[in-house]
Design a protein around this nucleic acid. Structure first.
Lengths: 115, 115
DNA sequence: CAGATGGTTAACGTCAGCGTTAAATATTGC
DNA sequence: GCAATATTTAACGCTGACGTTAACCATCTG
């Protein structure tokens, strides 16, 4: 149940193009909150909330930088992506049975109509 | 660009728990629109719209059943899931470089402050 | 200490998504 | 032809997400 709720949040997080864009940028290098806001021509508060969403789902993580305590450096976190991959694997595990099931359902329906 | 838009829709489609539930059921066997509505204790119109969303993203496909032209049988369509997997692969391709990039960014920041 | 800088929270408006019921469309079977 | 069945479309209300600006907190710097 907890896992399902987390998947909800994960997919919702990824549904937003800005957030997917953020992930795309962080793929190459960690970036500061302000740099990300600028990259998407967006107000800092708006980006801040996107980052909160990504943090909450665990897709992203904020690190401090030793020189300046005001700066938050954001980077990706692999674990949650693995979870997503696990879901995909589970769904795709059943392709082979689809055709067979289709035939079975046809049988089932026909049987109901002609008992 | 078209692909990005489609990813938007795909993730948005999967963000809804009902629609993920539908996919979960269809994984085992194709089902009728009415059967799906009943399975989630939901009005037929509500389910109909969920199915429209899933159809639009191509995650699901509607087939006719030869006996009764009123009935629409829904089943999964593997192709779009592959597309999702491709996105995941792309994102995950860069894990190895993360640590290195982190160091580089630290350098970059420090250099800016002490030129 | 005063001002500037980096970031987040608060308050507000707008728009899109989800559910419901009522109506419409198409098909079946007597 | 006419009632029943399967599904979709239409119209309505509500709630939640996203963006903006203003205010707030912490930290750095001269």
């Amino acid at each position: 149940m907890g896992a399902a709720r987390r998947l909800d949040d994960t997919f919702a997080a990824l549904a937003d193009p800005t957030r997917r864009g953020v992930i795309d940028l962080l793929r190459e290098q960690p970036l500061r909150a302000g740099e990300l806001a600028a990259a998407f021509d967006m107000s800092p508060p708006a980006m801040s909330r996107h980052l909160r969403v990504l943090r909450k789902t665990g897709l992203v993580q904020e690190d401090a930088v030793e020189d300046d305590a005001r700066v938050k450096l954001y980077r990706l976190r692999p674990e949650r992506f693995s979870e997503l991959r696990a879901w995909l694997d589970e769904v795709e595990a059943f392709w082979g049975e689809q055709l067979q099931s289709f035939k079975e359902h046809a049988e089932r329906t026909r049987a109901k109509k002609r008992p």
